[in-house]
Write a protein that binds this DNA or RNA. Structure first.
Length: 789
DNA sequence: CGATCCCGCCATCGG
DNA sequence: CCGATGGCGGGATCG
């Protein structure tokens, strides 16, 4: 009855969509079945047969229309909607069809639940389910009641990366192993002796109840608006994704997922009903993820029998940072994190999550902001975020592609299926020069990066990616990170820069608080310009415009980047991996100053830049900046000051962290023109690192950018072990020839192209200390068959 | 029959 | 207090 109506509506509103935004992705997605003009038919079929729905993301008109035809043709106006037609997955498809993958800031990207529910002819409740998981991926975020904003996939890459990181930090890989091991043991000796132990470690290991993982431009909104017990779906969805991203073959069985999600804290109560409920929820989540084509249902066959599982089919998530681009940030973040750990040793990682108890604080901050922020702003307008997200996403993609170049896809066969042909084509033909330039970068990246199409990559993006050549040392493609206070300064300077207060916003609120704290902390440091990006350089790299003509200040900036970069590179290999962002690994997180900058036009005049520099240092110590944002077009004029979350904890923390970073930045700056850094710099660096615990006392790090690898006498055993095990993960996909790509820390640490003697800079910290390592490596040889459906 | 998962009651939340 | 959210799990469908 309702089907017909909804379809019609759907078709009508199509104009907003951009079916074309999804290039040839279909070709890649449907290996066996070439995408032809008959595509419609398929869509039609898929609409009717949920089995295929996940594969055919019915986009726009075709989907809607064919669906309509189909239904009307049958004359079955009321043909029992046949449960399937009402499936969450299909509904999600319809929902997604309403919005473009990559919405432009210009469009109206607001989502009104009422409307949607009505147009799609479903109860609100259903929409919530969809929206909730979309929220977990930051594809949408809540603005106000009944109102959400559509981000599309702009934030996806970053979100996934973050989730992966958090997943790693939570040792999900180990947990998966444990669960499997336990099952295995159960199979045989039912004595279940070792179980106790396992269970114990499992529990102790993960005490921190993660909450919602947020991203810098949107999180605040989501969390503040609904500080509601961010329980299930949203969080569960994130965790599920984490599991997938962290699991070796990218496959996680429903059962395992459920167990982990349940017992994250509690023991093995195997609460039957609880388990069942969890499974149910997972299905809900899986359905929308499937619609997004991020996962696909498969079956794993073990001795046990066929078990439902899900395979990640979304974009490959870069191991750590957004490539080198984020290295410096990573570095900074690491330092700070370390400090944080030192300060609050007891604090188990609760990174990236906001603890419920902090919600209040957050709110108060927000309130402050409101008071302070006199400018009346529409509660529902976030352009800033839009920009931000665009850049961020762009960034990650750029970073990803180059990496891919360097090494061939591990699983060529399998990849073929997943990789969009276009991407491959574009990316393969890279000039050697580019590759060379990348080498540096490559060394940084532990593992071959498979770049997969994000469901749909707009052509423009692809081409852009292709052209851009990474310039490791030049600092190209960096964004300028401003400290909030700085941002203000900039703004004041140039009217074209403006802060658009976020509705729910943190941005401003934070500003009010932060600057003080930060400036205070930083004031002691001399002023130095640390890392700053060269605006003109950013994406502009695509036109090889020179760096020769840069102002000295630029150079200065670049230099510091380079230095940090070299250090970071080492760092990158370390286990703690990607801290690319903004998050502050302490009780809550702090997305920091992620500022986007703007454009050529907006590019600051030199003198302003100088000012920028001085401010810049602030960023360095105070916070790991958030995503780097590549510069895109010249029409952008707004400076985005992304959310800046702060908590009392953080504030306390900052001062300490400053102690470490500043040293680095200062020295770097001083050596602006030389290719090598004064020894003193090295010393300081080493001292700092050691002091902070980032590197073992014996290790020396060279600040010389050229020396990327540190020959080291002794190697970090701890890390070595724990990670090595994972590699052993015994999943033998029948379908796939190649072994699962080694996406493990071990790989990261020791298989880098960089060189044998390379040693991760802070190898030994976090990773090795925690519990499980040895035992886990052992996973029964298991025949794991992956069968589609 | 087991795998899926729709449906909608009803507890919470936020205003 | 009310409408918005969204846990939750009974029980219908599907394969």
């Amino acid at each position: 009855k309702q089907a017909g109506g909804s379809q019609r509506v759907l078709a009508d509103r199509q104009p907003g969509c951009q079916p074309l935004a999804t290039p040839p992705k279909l070709g890649g997605a449907l290996p066996a079945e070439p995408w032809t003009p008959t595509a419609n038919l398929k869509v039609l079929i898929s609409a009717a047969s949920p089995e295929i729905r996940s594969r055919e993301r019915s986009r726009g008109l075709q989907g809607a229309r064919s669906c309509q035809e189909h239904l009307s043709g049958d004359e079955h106006e009321k043909s029992q909607p046949s449960r399937k037609e009402k499936s969450l997955g299909l509904l999600c498809l319809k929902f997604l069809a309403r919005y473009p993958d990559y919405p432009s800031a210009a469009e109206n990207n607001y989502i009104c639940l009422d409307e949607v529910a009505e147009e799609l002819n479903v109860e609100r409740r259903r929409i919530y389910s969809i929206v909730n998981v979309l929220e977990s991926l930051h594809m949408v975020s809540r603005l106000a009641k009944n109102r959400y904003i559509w981000h599309g996939q702009h934030n996806l890459a970053k979100t996934l990366q973050t989730l992966k990181k958090v997943g790693e930090e939570n040792k999900y890989t180990e947990k998966i192993q444990m669960i499997k091991k336990r099952e295995y043991e159960h199979e045989f000796d039912l004595d279940g002796k070792g179980n106790e132990e396992v269970a114990r470690s499992f529990v102790s290991n993960e005490h921190s109840e993660m909450c919602f993982v947020e991203l810098p431009g949107i999180e605040f909104c989501a969390a503040s608006v609904n500080s509601r017990k961010d329980k299930s779906l949203r969080v569960m969805s994130q965790k599920f994704v984490m599991l997938l991203l962290v699991s070796a073959p990218y496959i996680v069985s429903l059962e395992v997922a459920a167990k982990i999600l349940i017992g994250e804290n509690q023991l093995e109560d195997l609460d039957k009903s609880k388990f069942k409920t969890k499974i149910r929820r997972l299905y809900d989540i899986a359905n929308v993820l499937s619609s997004l084509e991020l996962i696909k249902k498969v079956h794993v066959t073990e001795e046990r029998g066929r078990k439902p599982a899900f395979k990640w089919t979304g974009p490959e998530v870069p191991p750590n940072t957004h490539g080198m681009y984020m290295c410096h940030l990573l570095f900074q973040a690491q330092i700070i994190e370390q400090c944080s750990k030192n300060l609050f040793p007891s604090r188990v990682k609760q990174n990236f999550t906001r603890h419920p108890s902090l919600t209040k604080l957050v709110k108060s901050i927000e309130n402050d902001r409101r008071k302070i922020q006199s400018a009346p702003t529409s509660p529902v307008k976030i352009n800033t975020n839009e920009h931000l997200s665009v850049y961020t996403s762009e960034m990650s993609q750029l970073a990803a592609i180059p990496q891919y170049q360097l090494e061939e896809p591990p699983k060529s066969e399998d990849m073929k299926n997943n990789l969009s042909g276009s991407v491959l084509e574009h990316s393969l033909p890279w000039p050697e020069a580019a590759l060379k330039a990348n080498i540096h970068t490559a060394a940084t990246l532990p593992k071959p990066l498979l770049t997969q199409p994000l469901g749909a990559l707009p052509p423009s993006r692809q081409s852009a990616s292709t052209v851009i050549k990474p310039q490791p040392h030049s600092g190209a493609s960096y964004a300028i990170y401003l400290h909030p206070s700085e941002a203000q300064a900039v703004t004041a300077y140039n009217p074209s820069f403006m802060f658009q207060p976020l509705p729910c916003a943190n941005v401003t609120g934070i500003k009010s608080i932060n600057p003080k704290a930060l400036s205070e902390m930083t004031s002691k440091e001399g002023d130095n310009c640390t890392a700053a990006a060269d605006p003109g350089k950013t994406m502009a790299a695509k036109e090889r415009p020179v760096m020769e003509s840069e102002s000295s200040s630029n150079r200065c900036l670049k230099r510091s980047w380079a230095l940090q970069e070299s250090n970071l590179i080492k760092k990158c290999r370390s286990d703690e991996e990607s801290l690319d962002n903004t998050f502050f690994p302490s009780g809550y997180l702090i997305p920091l100053t992620q500022c986007t900058y703007h454009s050529n036009k907006a590019a600051l005049p030199n003198r302003e830049r100088g000012g920028l520099c001085s401010l810049q240092h602030t960023v360095t110590h105070s916070s790991p900046a958030a995503g780097a944002i590549p510069e895109m077009t010249s029409e952008l004029k707004a400076v985005n000051i992304p959310a800046f979350h702060i908590t009392s904890l953080n504030i306390m923390l900052s001062p300490t962290s400053i102690a470490a970073a500043p040293v680095l930045s200062n020295s770097h700056l001083s050596s602006s023109n030389t290719s090598s850094v004064p020894n003193s710099s090295s010393s300081l660096l080493n001292f700092t690192l050691q002091h902070v615990g980032l590197i073992p006392a014996g290790v020396q790090v060279s600040t010389n950018p050229v020396l990327q690898h540190i020959p080291i006498p002794s190697k970090p055993e701890s890390v070595n072990h724990s990670s090595e095990n994972m590699t052993l993960q015994e999943e033998k996909p029948t379908v796939l020839k190649e072994p699962p790509e080694p996406q493990t820390m071990t790989e990261n640490l020791f298989h880098t192209p960089g060189g044998p003697n390379t040693v991760p800079l802070l190898s030994a910290n976090a990773g090795g200390t925690d519990t499980i390592s040895q035992g886990t490596s052992y996973i029964p040889q298991r025949k794991l068959e992956v069968s589609e459906n």
